[in-house]
Computed example of a mutant assay.
Amino acid sequence: MTYCVAMRLNSGLVFLSDSRTNAGVDHIGTFRKMSVYENAGDRVMVLMTAGNLSISQSIRQLLSDRTNAEGHTIWTAKSMYEAAQILGDTIRAVHDRDAEELSKFGIDFNVSIIFGGQIKGERCRLFQMYSAGNFIESHDENTYFQIGEAKYGKPIIDRVVTPKTSLDEAAKCALISMDSTLKSNISVGLPLDLLLYANDQLAVTRFVTIDEQNQYFQMIRRSWGAQLKRVFEAIDDPIWNAAPETTLNVLSSVDELSEPVRVPPPVEVTRSILEPVPRQTLAEDGGKEQAT
Rank of each mutant, 00 (worst) to 15 (best):
D193Y: 02
R279V: 13
R92S: 11
I136C: 01
L248A: 14
T181C: 14
A84C: 10
L228S: 02
Y81W: 01
V94K: 00
D285N: 08
Q280D: 09
E212W: 04
A132Q: 14
S103F: 02
N10S: 09
I273K: 00
N10I: 04
S35M: 06
S223N: 14
S19G: 14
V14D: 07
L62Q: 14
L9W: 02
S54Q: 10
P163G: 01
D193Q: 05
R222E: 07
V208H: 08
E137K: 00
G121F: 00
D193H: 06
T90I: 10
M1L: 09
D193V: 00
W240S: 06
V46S: 07
I74A: 02
F15D: 02
T2E: 08
N241T: 00
L63K: 00
V254E: 13
M219Y: 14
G116L: 02
Y130L: 12
R8V: 03
A150K: 15
M45V: 03
R222K: 01
R271C: 09
K151P: 12
T205C: 00
I113R: 01
K120S: 13
N241P: 06
I74E: 01
P238E: 02
I119M: 03
V263G: 02
S223H: 13
F232D: 15
H72A: 08
A69F: 05
H27R: 05
G189Y: 04
S258P: 15
L87R: 01
P163Q: 02
Q215T: 02
E141A: 03
G117T: 02
R271Q: 09
S54K: 11
I186T: 06
M45T: 04
D168C: 02
A83I: 04
N199D: 12
